[in-house]
């Protein structure tokens, strides 16, 4: 197949369509999986948040609460923040912190604090961005020219391209969540091609040709099982670090034949392009990354993500298989939902 400009539009449409689906996947997986996880009370839902201030001195900590929220390096607050307009909490009877001490004066409500312990039930992330770097590969192809085997060697460089994805997970223990992610990337490849073309009239007389072909498409789909650990960085800023096994499927164009011109006496040939074949495959590998979120509301925020993935697949554009590295470094930004 020849390469050309219309190809990009079609590919972009495909990627957008898949991105939408991917987002749905993540959300649905996260939501549908909820009953499988021990459900905390509705008050615990949401992002890792400051422990609500007890209304009374006898108000026990909510069931399931394991620790007081606090920001690293901040002074521990025994009473927690008081919501705006609320009365100052009375110290609990017998409370060691308040025994014999007068209640503190009314003060301005403290802003929500970050927490070392995540009490939410899950999260969903939808992102769009770019694949910044990807492993290249070398492929060879053998094809008949003038009743003799010609060879093609292509060194491929994978360019930057759009990436869309979604991740989701359910908290299973402390700040650990288990979930999955889907990522779609669409990139184009540039090939540095070297060919050995047989002479039409004599055996074992080869002409060397070299050239470059670009615009070859490549679409990758990553599906990963991920363990995520939440780290609260600041008052509204959290970070998930995640890693897990991944399967990356790829569909890409690969060089299968050299197009060339030649004329008598055929001592040389001129590279004019390549013929490609669309090849599919996939392989298991790993993925890891970090996702930083800034919460705009209790449940919704925005954030950015860096992900590195790697897998390899053996693709066969012709009789000669080529080991192709998949994945790469992605940066993406988008919406976050915590619940």
């Amino acid at each position: 197949m020849r390469r050309g400009p219309g190809h990009t539009v079609t590919r972009a449409r495909t990627v957008l369509r898949r991105a939408a689906v991917t987002a749905l996947v993540a959300i649905a997986v996260a939501v549908a999986a909820r009953p499988l996880i021990a459900q905390p009370s509705s008050q615990q839902a949401g992002r890792p948040q400051p422990q609500p201030a007890p209304k009374t001195a006898t108000n026990p900590a909510p069931p399931g609460a394991t620790a007081q929220p606090q920001t690293s390096g901040t002074k521990p607050q025994t009473g927690g923040a008081t919501p705006a307009g609320a009365q100052p909490a009375k110290p609990a009877a017998g409370s060691p912190q308040t025994k014999g001490v007068q209640a503190p004066p009314p003060r301005k409500p403290a802003p929500p604090r970050t927490s070392k312990v995540w009490k939410g039930r899950g999260f969903a992330v939808v992102s769009g961005g770019a694949q910044l770097a990807a492993p290249g590969y070398t492929s060879t192809a053998v094809f008949k020219v003038h009743a003799e085997n010609a060879t093609l060697t292509a060194n491929a460089t994978v360019g930057i391209g759009p990436a869309f994805g979604a991740r989701g997970g359910m908290r299973v223990w402390k700040n650990l969540a288990i979930g999955g992610g889907l990522e779609l990337t669409s990139t184009s490849q540039t090939l540095d091609v070297t060919g050995r073309l047989p002479h039409p009239f004599q055996f074992n007389q080869f002409r060397e040709v070299q050239g470059t072909a670009d615009g070859l498409g490549r679409t990758e789909t990553l599906a990963a099982l991920e363990l995520s650990w939440l780290i609260a960085l600041a008052r509204r800023v959290d970070m998930f670090v995640f890693a897990g096994p991944a399967y990356i499927s790829v569909r890409q164009d690969m060089a299968s034949r050299i197009q060339f011109t030649e004329s008598y006496p055929y001592e040389t040939a001129t590279f004019t392009g390549i013929e490609t074949t669309s090849v599919r495959g996939g392989g298991f590998g790993v993925t890891a990354g970090a996702d930083v979120s800034y919460l705009l509301t209790k449940h919704v925020g925005i954030g950015g993500q860096l992900r590195y993935s790697y897998a390899s697949a053996t693709l066969k554009p012709s009789e000669q298989p080529a080991k192709v590295g998949l994945g790469g470094l992605q940066a993406a930004f988008g919406a976050r939902i915590l619940f």
Binding site: M1, R2, R3, G4, P5, G6, H7, T10, R11, R18, V21, T22, L182, L184, G215, G217, T221, A223, Y247, S249, R251, S278, R280
Partner: peptide, 14 residues
């Protein structure tokens, strides 16, 4: 997405 089932429609440049 993972297993596209339409290899029959192969998009080329034009």
């Amino acid at each position: 997405i993972l297993f596209p089932a339409h290899p029959s429609a192969q998009a080329g440049s034009d």
